[in-house]
Simulated scan of single mutants.
Amino acid sequence: MTLTGDQIENEGLTGWANLGGSLRTRVRTGSFVAGLALVDAVGAAAEEQGHHPDVDLRYPHVDITLTSHDAGGLTERDVRLARTVTALAAGSGLELDPGAVSRLELALDTPDRAAVLPFWRALLGYQGQPGSDDEVRDPAGALPPVWFQESGSEEPRQRWHPDVWIDPTQVQPRIDAALAAGGTLVDAEQAPSFWVLADPEGNRACLCTWQDRG
């Protein structure tokens, strides 16, 4: 059974960002060797729990993503492993930085997604999502997913826009930075689910959070 955003919030996890179907964090390791040691420890714990994260080892940090692919979202398994990772990091004197992570989706506005989705799935080498007719994903999970947002057919219209999923605590700083960089806040009617912003030429993007999504 997948957990709602409110249920995840009520778990009281610290150091993790709920980015819509996945829990993510960045562990500041300070060195490649410390990062590798953490990855080894997380891998052993994941084997014990029978639930495996996506891990990206870099210098000087490690990004960790948790989701239950078989359930199509977040479950108690992810919460349990998140607590384990937090404890392992703390035991090594390492800090979790959830404000440093985000998730990027590409959205194509289309009045007929059934007509265009097969083309993009084939071109990108992506796969469809079981139980979903509006999204395609990279089988390896390395590239951003593409989802097809229903729109009108009036011209001119912006066809593509990025959806950037971030932790709710990062929304206002990100908006402030975008406005200072010459952008505009186009629409906050759906906040705190998402905000629509535009660059100086009017190209739009959305900042998204897990909030108010059921």
Rank of each mutant, 00 (worst) to 15 (best):
Tyr59Pro: 00
Ala180Ser: 13
Ile8Cys: 09
Glu9Ala: 15
Val171Thr: 08
Asp6Arg: 15
Phe32Ala: 06
Pro60Met: 08
Glu154Ile: 03
Ala100Thr: 09
Ala115Ser: 13
Leu124Trp: 02
Asp54Ile: 02
Leu207Ala: 09
Ala89Arg: 00
Ala140Asp: 14
Glu9Gly: 06
Asp187Tyr: 07
Trp147Met: 00
Ala82Phe: 01
Asp97Pro: 13
Pro173Tyr: 12
Pro192Asp: 09
Leu96Ala: 10
Gly202Phe: 12
Val146Leu: 14
Glu11His: 14
Glu155Met: 04
Glu154Asn: 01
Ser151Cys: 12
Ala87Gly: 03
Trp210Gly: 03
Val79Ile: 15
Gly152Gln: 12
Thr169Arg: 13
Arg137Asn: 13
Arg24Asp: 00
Arg113Lys: 12
Phe194Thr: 02
Asp78Arg: 05
Pro60Ile: 07
Thr209Asn: 10
Asp112Asn: 13
Pro168Ser: 06
Glu47Arg: 12
Val146Ser: 04
Ala181Trp: 07
Pro156Cys: 11
Ser102Leu: 08
Ala177Asp: 09
Leu108Glu: 09
Ala122Ile: 00
Asp54Phe: 05
Glu95Pro: 00
Asp176Val: 06
Gly30Phe: 13
Gly214Cys: 05
Gln127Ser: 11
Trp16Leu: 08
Ile175Gly: 01
Asp78Lys: 06
Glu189His: 13
Gln127Trp: 04
Ala205Gly: 11
Thr184Glu: 14
Ser92Glu: 15
Glu9Thr: 14
Ser153Cys: 02
Leu81Gly: 05
Asp54Asn: 08
Pro139Ile: 11
Ala142Glu: 09
Thr84Ile: 08
Ser151Thr: 14
Trp210Asp: 11
Cys208Tyr: 00
Arg157Asn: 04
Arg174Tyr: 09
Ala45Lys: 07
Ile175Asn: 01
Gly202Arg: 07
Gly35Ala: 05
Pro111Ser: 00
Asp6Asn: 13
Asn10Glu: 15
Gly214Lys: 09
Thr29Gly: 06
Thr86Ser: 13
Pro111His: 03
Pro173Met: 12
Val62Gly: 02
Glu9Arg: 14
Ala44Glu: 14
Val101Leu: 05
Ala41Gln: 10
Gly43Glu: 03
Pro200Asp: 06
Asp134Gly: 05
Ser153Gln: 10
Pro118Lys: 12
Leu207Ser: 09
Val42Leu: 10
Thr29His: 07
Ser151Gln: 11
Gln172His: 11
Pro192Thr: 09
Val196Lys: 12
Arg58Pro: 04
Arg26Val: 00
His69Met: 03
Gln7Glu: 15
Leu106Asp: 04
Ala82Glu: 04
Ser92Gly: 15
Pro118Asp: 10
Ala178Asn: 02
Leu106Gly: 01
Gln127Cys: 03
Gly93Tyr: 04
Gln127Glu: 15
Asp163Pro: 01
Gln211Cys: 01
Pro130Cys: 07
Pro162Val: 03
Glu48Lys: 12
Glu154Cys: 00
Asn10Ile: 02
Gly93Asp: 06
Gln7Lys: 10
Gly21Ser: 11
Trp195Leu: 09
Phe194Asn: 08
Leu66Lys: 07
His61Met: 02
Gly5Val: 09
Gln129Gly: 00
Leu94Pro: 07
Thr29Lys: 04
Asp112Glu: 14
Val85Trp: 02
Trp195Pro: 10
Thr2Ser: 01
Leu124Cys: 06
Tyr126Thr: 05
